[in-house]
Simulated scan of single mutants.
Amino acid sequence: MTPVALLLLCGLLFSSPGDAQRRRKKPPAPKNPIDNIGVQGNFDPNQFAGKWFLVAAASRCSYLSENHYRLEATNVMVTVADAETPEKPLLFSIFRPLDGHCWNIRQTYFPSRTPGRFQVLGRGQPVDVVVGETDYNTYAIVYYQKAGKISAKLYGRTVKVSETITLKFEERMASVGLDLNLVYYFPVYGFCDAVDEFHLLDETKYTGTR
């Protein structure tokens, strides 16, 4: 028997069942990228509620990079759902022009056990959401993860935010691998606040239950 064969045999003979079990163990599931993002401390949904303007978005979405010149002014009304649970869902009512019409998109942000973390359900894969930071009165940086990919949005209580806040947003984006060329700023005019019944997309019907 060759020395190599003897070595392999010895390895098999002196391996304990525990060693084999350890070798068969599945590797731990990879950590979600969004789990590395800090959440706004002591997040208060009631302070977060109210009207926000979408100032900027950061994303690797190819459609966004190819059509960023077509971005439209977007504003959001956030309300706290009247649910009988300590963790209240947030209702996002998004208004934006599209093809000459004002559209209203309604979504439910379902809370997790961690204040400031949510999940949005829809036709496709669920979207994990983290309110990374906000002062409630001026700005909010919100992160989104779908299919393991991170994007983010900068909201302002007014259509424009200070240069200090935009620089902060760009720095936060760089820290998650979204460089400046992946940050897109939205128009500050052309907002709409009301739509007719034919231009409503209600995604609040998606609850994850059957």
Rank of each mutant, 00 (worst) to 15 (best):
T79A: 06
I105W: 10
A73Q: 03
V129M: 04
V131F: 02
Y109P: 03
G124L: 13
S112L: 02
F110L: 15
R123G: 15
S112Y: 01
T138K: 11
N67E: 09
F110M: 13
Y136E: 04
Y143V: 00
Y155A: 06
P89C: 08
T79N: 08
A81H: 08
V78W: 02
V131W: 00
Q107Y: 10
T74P: 01
V127F: 00
Y63H: 12
Q125M: 15
S65K: 12
Q125I: 13
P111L: 06
Y139E: 04
I94R: 03
K88S: 08
S93Q: 15
W103C: 02
C61A: 15
T114W: 03
G124T: 14
F110E: 02
K149R: 08
A152D: 00
Q107E: 11
L98S: 14
K149W: 08
P111Q: 04
R117E: 04
S65V: 11
H68Y: 10
M77S: 13
T85C: 09
S151V: 07
Q119R: 12
Y144E: 08
I94G: 02
K149Q: 09
S112T: 02
D82W: 10
P111T: 07
F92I: 03
K149D: 09
I94F: 00
A147P: 05
L71W: 09
S151G: 06
D135W: 03
L98H: 14
M77F: 14
V130Y: 01
L64T: 06
P115G: 01
G116H: 02
G132P: 03
L98E: 12
T74R: 03
G124I: 11
W103H: 07
V76W: 06
Y69L: 15
A140Q: 03
P126W: 06
E84A: 13
V130D: 00
R113L: 15
N104C: 14
E133G: 07
R106A: 09
P111E: 11
F110P: 02
S93H: 10
T114E: 06
A152L: 03
E72W: 07
Q145Y: 00
S112D: 07
F92N: 04
I141V: 11
F118S: 01
G124E: 11
E133F: 05
S65Y: 13
P86C: 11
T134M: 02
N137M: 08
D82C: 10
M77A: 09
V78S: 04
Y63I: 09
K88A: 07
V131S: 00
H101T: 10
P111A: 03
N104M: 15
Y136A: 03
A81M: 09
Y109W: 12
L154D: 05
V130L: 04
Y63G: 05
D135N: 13
R117A: 00
P111W: 04
A81Y: 06
I141G: 01
Y155V: 07
I105Y: 13
E87T: 11
T85V: 14
Q107W: 08
R96K: 15
G122N: 06
A147C: 13
K88Q: 10
Y144P: 02
R123Q: 15
W103P: 01
K146N: 06
G132Q: 05
K146Y: 07
